[in-house]
């Protein structure tokens, strides 16, 4: 309860000033200057106008938070104007592109029966009909109804997907929900350890851990195995939906580096195969 209140107060804290510095969520830990390593980056695409962001490199070894270094993040990836509409479009795309609708109705040709003319054209004083399964009839076929196996596949334009990722990362960073961690090494494989860690550091109940590689260390894998709200993901699996679904996003130092690198390359490259309009007829 108290941690929730703390969260609320944190949210309401509006920082003025031109630069936004990421404040540590637990401010009573004084970093030991001797251990801090400030990594000054050599930018391949130097930030033009917006200042680069700085973030603490934290640890997962102890429940208590320790700051192991300071790390710079590129503004074009972690400090862009968060385009909520692009984030929405990305989420919509992720939900719809793999949806196959299995609803199915029969047309007048598929409904059983209805081959014979029910009564002669003239003479009876009744309305003229050709078959008992025409759409006008009760029990007849459905016109323009759903047809089974309807795919809703479409590809969102490449730039929209890139900007969706950068907007979500920027939004997460601005709302203090993004933390950079040195690596995913845990001292024990007890799930209780992770739960305690998350509680004490005021990270949201659901946490997404993003690592550079496909394989994570044993301890963290075992600890998070039965926790549905704590998930590990490799860098190439990063997507807008998962980032929004989980409250906090934890990136390893190398993962943050890689994400930045790849996104910057896509933002500065000429038309590549990925950026060309997606054609269903591609070979």
């Amino acid at each position: 309860m108290s941690s929730n209140l703390l969260n609320v107060f944190k949210r309401l804290n509006i920082t003025a000033a031109t630069q936004i510095r990421l404040c540590s969520s637990v401010s009573n830990v004084v970093p030991d200057n001797r251990e801090i390593s400030v990594t000054k980056k050599e930018w391949k695409f130097p930030p033009q106008y917006t200042k680069p962001r700085e973030v603490w490199i934290e640890n997962l070894d102890t429940i208590e938070e320790k700051k192991l270094g300071l790390f710079e993040l590129h503004p074009l990836v972690y400090a862009t104007v968060p385009r909520i509409d692009l984030i929405h479009r990305n989420v919509e795309w992720q939900k719809k592109y793999r949806w196959v609708s299995w609803a199915h109705t029969k047309t007048r040709a598929e409904v059983r029966g209805g081959g014979r003319k029910p009564w002669p054209q003239k003479g009876l004083g009744r309305a003229r009909h050709g078959s008992i399964r025409s759409p006008l009839w009760r029990g007849g076929g459905i016109v323009h109804g759903p047809r089974s196996g309807k795919t809703h596949f479409f590809m969102l334009p490449f730039d929209m997907r890139i900007h969706g990722l950068t907007s979500t990362l920027s939004a997460k960073f601005a709302q203090d929900d993004l933390h950079v961690v040195k690596d995913l090494e845990l001292p024990t494989e007890e799930p209780a350890y992770i739960i305690d860690l998350i509680e004490s550091r005021n990270w949201g109940p659901s946490v997404l851990l993003v690592d550079d590689t496909d394989y994570a260390p044993r301890n963290i894998t075992v600890a998070t195995d039965n926790l549905p709200h704590v998930n590990i993901m490799p860098v190439y699996g990063l997507n807008v939906y998962s980032m929004l679904k989980h409250d906090t996003l934890i990136l390893t130092h190398s993962a943050a580096q890689k994400i930045e690198e790849r996104l910057l390359i896509h933002l500065h490259s000429s038309i590549t195969e990925q950026q060309m309009k997606f054609k269903l007829s591609q070979v």
Binding site: R11, N13, T50, V81, P82, A171, Q175
Partner: peptide, 15 residues
């Protein structure tokens, strides 16, 4: 940019 990011800090978590 700064204005929009600062505004986000005072709004509920993006979900």
């Amino acid at each position: 940019t700064e204005k929009s990011l600062v505004m986000l800090r005072s709004l509920p978590r993006l979900s």
